[in-house]
Design a protein around this nucleic acid. Structure first.
Lengths: 210, 210
DNA sequence: CACTAAAGCGGAGGCGCCTCCGTTTATTAC
DNA sequence: GTAATAAACGGAGGCGCCTCCGCTTTAGTG
């Protein structure tokens, strides 16, 4: 019933938390990685014992690192968000900017899929600590902005839209009901949006290529 | 994850649900009664096995009657609300109308105490089926109205207030934080309110006693 | 009353949660 | 290198959840 405030502290200090012993750090990383996979595969209610087992550690180790399920879920979610943001840069290097945008948005669909699941389980935490989602969503939309601006700048998508338009267009992904077809429907939405963005590419940019 | 719509149906038809076998009905009643006591004593997370044990039935029987914890909690809550409403009539018969009102409000504090606990556990259900609270709160405020009007009518409390004023004044009980002192604080609030209501009793009633 | 079908019972068993503490391992100091 | 110590490990064990199904009881019928 009582929600521990320590969660907040823990996450804020994450970067400068006291150095873990090498083995501890290894186990912790492993756990987060495995947890991400297991949550994706089995859903958010997956057994923590399975996670420990697959990570090759005892259940006690899992609990030492993540005193509650929510702690683990939160860390997984943050990692997911970071991965998504990092992908923006990587995709931008490897692909034409419109393709980069498209692929990133497809990945965004997956991200939202997890986010939905996690939200259910984090609900209790969130009522107390609501920096989590605002934190990450800021950085995610920053990543999107970067991609959209690049694509507009080199004329691979139309110039009369900006990142917030795109985000708005994507909002259907958030709000669509949690049906089995959700993911496919969302993928189609991204394609549709992309076609719309490509249509008339090169025209109407506020700044014509310099 | 999926929330069963059957809960709604089950409750609506509660009155005319197919007759249970005598032993089944006995067990069911017993379970609800015991559950109310155990929830009050141990909190909403009390062990269902303890409830079954104390009710003298097997855990299987509990689960047959109440397939999820939430089902049980809901029934307990409805029973609580009914008891509160019924108390209005009983208190009105046994006591002067201002005393009846005061005692009822004290009981109301207990009711809210459970309601808070239950709300936590029912949250998931409530997002789907929100008739529960509106249902009961209508009847509860009806009970309050009856008491307030009687007390105004016979001049034991002041006449320039009505039931909704009193309910409004009680809202502090709802919204106060869930601290250990909550109950005492709420009891004092009721006393305070009662003093206010008695002050100037007999004056200013819209209708002087007929 | 006896008989039968249907309804209901109950607890064993499998699984997951979480804690506790004896054992192991990394790190630090020498 | 070794020793000392703090940090971390891991899994046994206790408890609760929930399902499943062989056994018991009730309600109906003649």
């Amino acid at each position: 019933m009582a929600v521990e405030p320590s969660v907040i502290a823990e996450t804020k200090n994450a970067v400068e938390t006291k150095r873990l012993r090498a083995d501890a750090q290894r186990n912790r990383d492993r756990l987060v990685e495995v947890a991400a996979a297991v949550f994706a595969e089995r859903g958010i209610d997956a057994s923590l014992e399975e996670i420990a087992r697959r990570a090759g550690v005892g259940i006690g180790t899992l609990y030492r690192h993540f005193p509650t399920r929510e702690h683990l879920v939160e860390v997984v979610y943050r990692r997911e968000a970071e991965g998504l943001c990092a992908a923006a840069g990587e995709l931008a290097e490897k692909h034409p900017s419109d393709v980069a945008l498209e692929q990133w948005m497809q990945r965004f669909v997956d991200y939202i899929a997890t986010k939905r699941g996690l939200a259910t389980s984090l609900r209790i935490l969130l009522t107390t600590n609501s920096t989590l989602f605002s934190d990450t969503s800021g950085r995610v939309s920053q990543a999107l902005r970067q991609l959209v601006e690049a694509a507009v700048a080199d004329g691979t998508i139309r110039g009369d839209v900006d990142a917030s338009d795109v985000l708005h267009a994507l909002s259907g992904i958030y709000s669509a009901p949690d049906t089995p077809e959700w993911r496919d429907r969302s993928r189609r939405l991204v394609k549709l949006l992309m076609d719309g963005l490509r249509f008339g590419a090169g025209k109407g940019a506020k700044k014509a290529g310099e």
